[in-house]
Design a binder for these strands. Structure first.
Ligand SMILES: Nc1ccn([C@H]2C[C@H](O)[C@@H](COP(=O)(O)OP(=O)(O)OP(=O)(O)O)O2)c(=O)n1
Ligand SMILES: [Mg+2]
Length: 1192
DNA sequence: ATCCTCCCCTAC
DNA sequence: TAAGGTAGGGGAGGAT
């Protein structure tokens, strides 16, 4: 990612010139507090017209952010979000980082599987070169034996460090610590436990840390003595959401509201964790090895409401104050000490050189946000493709026979169910009636933990938590936040959002495992791939969660006649099973007829189950819930409800009139609640809203000494922001600078390590002053302006605790008119002839509905369709419902991905590919394994910019593959995409490919049956032509009206195009080649190529074929057909002669050694033939349509 | 009324 | 030692 840092344009001096005045003008509107900054601190809260203080209601709230972050029960979502297509998977560079370790583990697994424990020697440690340092708990001899016994290598000396992979030790002298600083120093437990577990465990979990006690495994209680002090310290577990608010609301204090309903889950540990229980835990040695009193199954719907919104620090000062001895203002000692040392500060705060990069790389929240955006883009594109395909499908819907396989086959259809229930997507009013919609809410169970346990099976069933702090790091005073807690850990009251020290107080033996962002993403892709194969519509909620509309899929299952009481639940189980097979992780699925209820159902389903919430049980389900258990309602609403309505229980609130609710919560919110109380939720799934802003902010580690540091940081932030904007090809006209400044009452160092502590927040929005043009993404401009805003506040730089920049009023970056931002466009540009087609200025922002309509009905899509026909704008009009557009999907990268795919997969893909352009042809292709080298045949971007573009294109492609149709394939490519972190992807060497292939094994994880099922579905969907005419116009709705969505005007259907008759006496293995209207051209070609695998193509055949192709192209309707055929031919050639694809390019006709027939010669001959035919077609196309053809 | 701006709030 | 980001819905209150 670093490589694509754009050279921010010239900040231009002219800008500078006008800058000042413009800036001043902007300032005027800011209306800063009248008094000096210092004075402002105190009174700020009140009377500030523009500069507002955030959360004026709890002026003393501590870590505001923390409060929000760890809020609610960590497991819901909602979001009617936006969507936007285009972001690519950023930051995945680091994703690949751990691949190696993972492979190692996998290998180990295989080894084990193969030999079992019976065989005296496993290969578990194969590849490891271990050196044992000093005295160790199991003696050196024992360890050595162990290592050797399991295939590892033992090094008695450390002479050649390079050859040693790991160092085992129980203690290190300071000198050694230094010496081994860059090596993997691990505790003996790593080996011991790996052997015990029968699998090589991640060494990272056993990193040796000096000063750490030697223990066989992490976690162990031990230093309980520190507990006391740490307790008075900062991070106290907080009261549950409900409890805390009760306290705050003085009046009806503690008793009733919430706490009552969850006596279950919230044993002493949960809700009341606060102080009393804390001391209890303190006790000593034996920490609870089992939850206080496992409440086991919560019965009430309110169930798991871990409503304790634990956060690292108390949510508000008010709460904090209620806790005796609690010190929200207690500084983090560690940080305090560090800050005293200039060198430390320089290395550990935002002034460090690559702070931003490092921070984002490790920020889970940043990743969550990024992933969400990416997934939304993915889904959006997939849907577009489906829509297009659907349009041309029309009749090949589902009914027909051929599904004996049962419903599963049909399920494979994926997002296109509308064919069955066309009105589904409509806006639905009365949509809420059961039977009308079937919504599923799918969510992984403790996602991060589950993902982490995939490679740590021995930890299943234990209280595990994911956080940065590992082992006994931080001891009992770690402020590291817990991202996810296993259900076993939750039994102790541990929750996501808590600090590790809080968790340890609840369960001293809690086990911590590190983040594995790469894996989360990989699993998520598998997850989404599977979901998409079953859904009519899908809304990406987060990396581990999605909302599905499976109405038609379920309807189909019903029609299939299969016996079942609950088809929806059956489907849910199918999905759960598939996801489990693919990821080894459990997902839970809530089903109901609207989003609200599906979410509630998930709560009941939660640990690894599915639950169908039916209309008749609505009441009993909802009544006992607390208002903040509804998605979208949080503790603020709970608070308001308590204050203004006297209750927070839905059953009670249901007695209130609509007006009362609105008065208390606001019009919209009140209305929403009113309906929710009755189980009504008319919200529709959202999957294609355009993004409205792009921002970037860091409120961690901000500790400046002077303005220079602040300014530098601001510019770095702007760089990052500019990068993000460029990535999606967007620019903005407005900017908002957000500043977090230490609250005067807060300590200089907050309790949370390097956190922002209690702050005052200032936002200043202003219009970007741009030298030329209306919008920008220029880091210089943004940075400069943002800095001026900050400077104008005149804050003491030492008091700053957070800085953020947000860009609004977005518009397309370069002139692209592409609906899909970024990548689409870049890819588009890459097309050789795209020449001008690109867009016309003006087409960009708004496109009349008519045009949209036109655009919308794109041709079918086809994921794997490499051809792109580019035609100039005017031509396009004339073609009327002409075909449209779509990006090619088999870009060169695809190619490499393709080659790296497992043989059987490739086979299926090819088949699918072929099928797509042809009528269903029952024909099994026997696949061959050539793992051709790759090196994409087509233009490969080489410059940095191009690289960027290429990357974008990849994403795009991948996205496409995610589509329902050929979903079986998507995964792999996706991975591949991720894997490719370097600019290398321009040209992929054979070796590299191979390597990548190994790495991206995600694909293999997809259950075969799923692949099959998906293919079956695709088969049905058969043809959707794959031709794509690239229209420079804005292909997609930027702002499309729902109605447009389903309009389907006439447009060519590739598969129905009658083949021009043509006969030729070609000879394929002594057979004749006949191209007729009814012939399966693809089959013929395949036989041809296959038959001549050992020979160069017959000249006459080539000519004839070429002629036929040209003919097709000339008869407009046949163009697509021709492209399909050509594409198929291309696939075949790559399959058999992939290596030579680009071979003949350089050496223009090498020295004719016609004498001997080499495979190289044959290959080149075939490619040459292909090139000739392609050129010929191109020529015709150019002449006829004025555009160009791009076959890839 | 309706729109716009500036937050707050929520979610993962 | 830790990595407290980020986008959108919606309310309040002023401008139109
Ligand atoms: N404040 C948050 C919320 C979530 N996450 C991460 C960790 C979670 O594993 C993942 C998914 O969030 P969920 O709310 O779905 O929580 P879990 O999947 O962990 O648990 P559950 O079983 O309740 O879904 O997102 C996080 O890091 N910080
Ligand atoms: Mg989850």
């Amino acid at each position: 990612m670093e490589e694509e840092i754009p050279a921010s344009g010239a900040a231009s001096s002219e800008w500078y010139g006008s800058q000042d005045s413009a800036f001043l003008e902007g300032l005027r509107t800011i209306s800063l507090p009248d008094r000096g900054i210092e004075a402002r601190h105190g009174d700020q809260q009140e009377a500030q017209p523009n500069v507002k203080r955030v959360r004026p209601e709890d002026p003393e709230s501590d870590d505001v952010q923390a409060e929000t972050a760890g809020d609610k029960d960590f497991g819901k979502d909602y979001l009617k979000s936006e969507t936007y297509g285009a972001s690519k998977f950023g930051q995945f560079g680091e994703y690949m980082r751990r691949k190696r370790a993972k492979l190692q583990i996998q290998n180990a697994e295989m080894d084990i599987d193969g030999e079992h424990e019976t065989s005296g020697k496993s290969r578990m440690f194969h590849g490891l070169s271990i050196y044992i340092n000093g005295w160790t708990e199991p003696s050196v001899q024992d360890l050595r034996q162990l290592i050797i016994k399991h295939g590892g290598e033992y090094h008695p000396y450390l002479d050649r460090k390079a050859l040693v992979t790991h160092i085992i030790t129980c203690s290190l002298t300071p000198a050694k610590i230094k010496e081994f600083k860059h090596m993997k120093v691990v505790r003996p437990a790593w080996l011991l436990e790996s052997v015990a577990a029968g699998i090589l465990l991640p060494w990272q979990d056993y990193i040796f840390r000096s000063g750490e006690r030697v223990e066989s495994s992490q976690g162990r209680r031990s230093a309980q003595t520190f507990l006391l002090s740490s307790m008075t310290e900062s991070a106290q577990p907080i009261l549950s959401k409900s409890t805390s608010s009760a306290v705050a609301s003085s009046s009806s204090a503690a008793v009733p509201p919430t706490s009552p309903q969850l006596p279950s889950k919230s044993g002493p540990s949960t809700d009341t964790m606060p102080i009393a229980s804390t001391s209890k835990v303190t006790t000593d040695s034996l920490s609870p090895r089992t939850p206080p009193q496992s409440p086991s199954k919560p019965k009430t719907p309110s169930k798991s409401s871990p409503r304790a919104h634990y956060s690292t620090d108390p949510a508000t000062l008010a709460e904090a104050k209620t806790i005796p001895g609690y010190s929200a203002f207690k500084s983090n000692e560690h940080a305090q000490r560090g800050m005293a040392d200039p060198a430390w500060r320089a290395a550990h705060t935002a002034v460090a050189p690559d702070f931003i990069e490092g921070f984002y790389k490790n920020s889970r929240l940043h990743h969550l946000s990024t992933w969400k955006a990416e997934l939304k883009g993915l889904v959006q594109e997939a849907q577009e493709r489906v829509e297009r395909g659907f349009l041309c499908l029309d009749d090949d819907d589902l009914g027909d026979g051929q599904h004996e396989a049962g419903a599963s086959d049909r399920d494979a259809y994926s997002m296109r169910g509308t064919a069955v229930l066309p009105s589904l997507k409509g806006k639905g009013k009365a949509v809420d009636t059961p039977e009308e919609r079937v919504i599923m809410h799918c969510d992984f169970d403790c996602f991060f933990v589950s993902a982490g346990l995939v490679d740590r099976p021995h930890l299943k069933g234990k209280p595990v938590v994911v956080c940065h702090s590992q082992g006994s790091q931080g001891g009992l005073s770690s402020t590291s936040e817990i991202a996810s807690a296993s259900y076993e850990a939750r039994e102790f009251g541990i929750r996501g959002g808590m600090s590790l020290q809080q968790a340890r107080r609840l369960c001293p033996d809690v086990i911590t495992i590190p983040y594995e962002f790469e894996k989360y993403k990989k699993l998520s892709l598998l997850f989404y791939t599977i979901l998409m194969s079953h859904a009519d519509d899908l809304q990406a909620v987060s990396v581990d969660e999605a909302l599905l509309d499976v109405s038609s899929t379920v309807a189909r299952r019903k029609l299939s006649g299969t016996e079942s009481e609950d088809h929806a639940k059956d489907l849910a189980e199918v999905i759960r099973s598939q996801v489990w097979k693919a990821t080894s992780c459990e997902v839970s699925i809530g089903i109901s007829h609207n989003i609200l209820l599906a979410r509630l159902a998930t709560r009941r389903a939660k640990p690894a189950k599915s639950y169908h919430l039916l209309a008749n049980e609505l009441s009993e389900f909802i009544t006992p819930l607390d208002i903040d258990e509804l998605h979208g309602f949080g503790h603020k609403h709970h608070q308001k409800a308590q204050e203004k309505l006297g209750t927070t229980i839905l059953g009670e609130l249901a007695k209130k009139s609509r007006g009362v609710l609105c008065e208390a919560l606001g019009k919209g919110t009140g209305e929403t609640l009113y309906k929710a109380l009755r189980g009504i939720d008319e919200k529709k799934l959202e999957s294609d809203k355009p993004r409205k802003s792009v921002s970037c902010e860091i409120n961690y580690g901000i500790r400046f000494q002077n303005n220079e540091e602040a300014e530098t940081f601001m510019h770095q932030l702007a760089e990052e922001l500019g990068r993000r904007l460029d990535k999606i090809d967007m620019k903005g006209r407005s900017m908002t600078v957000k500043i977090m400044k230490r609250d005067p009452k807060a300590p200089t160092e907050p309790p949370k390590f390097m956190g922002h502590g209690v702050c005052e927040i200032f936002n200043k929005q202003c219009t970007l002053v741009i030298p030329a043009g209306r919008a920008t993404s220029d880091p210089q401009i943004i940075g400069e302006q943002a800095w001026r805003v900050l400077k104008a506040f005149n804050f003491d730089p030492k008091e700053l605790r957070g800085i953020g920049i947000q860009i609004q009023k977005l518009e397309k970056g370069s002139a692209a008119t592409e609906p899909e931002p970024g990548q689409a466009k870049l890819q588009f540009e890459r097309l050789k002839n795209a020449a001008k087609v690109d867009e016309t200025p003006g087409t960009r922002e708004e496109v009349p509905v008519d045009q949209l309509r036109h655009v919308c009905e794109l041709p079918p899509q086809a994921a794997p369709s490499p051809a792109v026909l580019v035609i100039p704008e005017k031509e396009k009009e004339k073609q009327d419902a002409a075909p449209i557009v779509d990006l090619p999907s088999f870009s060169q990268v695809d190619r490499s991905v393709f080659d790296a795919l497992p043989a059987d997969v490739r086979q299926e893909l090819e088949r699918e590919y072929k099928r797509r352009s042809e009528s269903p042809a029952p024909f099994l292709m026997q696949r061959r394994g050539s793992r051709a080298p790759s090196v994409g045949p087509f233009a490969v971007p080489t410059s940095k910019t191009m690289f960027k573009g290429a990357k974008a294109a990849n994403l795009k492609r991948i996205t496409k593959q995610l589509a329902p149709r050929n979903r079986a394939v998507l995964c792999p490519s996706k991975n591949k995409l991720f894997a490719k972190s370097g600019p290398s992807f321009v040209k992929v060497s054979d070796a590299e490919l191979k390597k990548l292939g190994l790495d991206s094994d995600v694909f293999n994880m997809l259950p075969v049956d799923l692949q099959r099922e998906q293919l079956a579905g695709a088969r049905q969907a058969q043809n959707v032509g794959k031709l794509s005419l690239k229209v420079p116009l804005k292909p997609r709705r930027i702002t499309r009206s729902p109605s447009v969505k389903w309009v389907r005007p006439p447009f060519p259907k590739a598969r129905y195009i009658p083949l021009p008759t043509l006969k030729q006496q070609g000879r394929v293995k002594s057979d004749k080649l006949y191209f007729t209207e009814t012939d399966d051209v693809q089959n013929v070609i395949e036989k041809w190529v296959e038959g001549f695998r050992e020979y160069p193509p017959n000249r006459r055949d080539v000519e004839y074929f070429e002629k036929w192709m040209v003919q097709c192209v000339e008869s407009r309707r046949g163009t697509e057909r021709a492209l399909d055929v050509a594409r198929w031919w291309l696939v075949l050639l790559r399959r058999y002669f992939g290596v030579w694809e680009r071979a003949g390019e350089d050496e223009e006709k090498g020295p004719g050694e016609e004498g001997r027939v080499t495979s190289e010669m044959i290959g080149k001959a075939w490619w040459k033939a292909f090139g000739e035919v392609k050129d010929k077609m191109n020529e015709v196309v150019r002449k006829k349509y004025g555009g160009s053809l791009s076959l890839r």
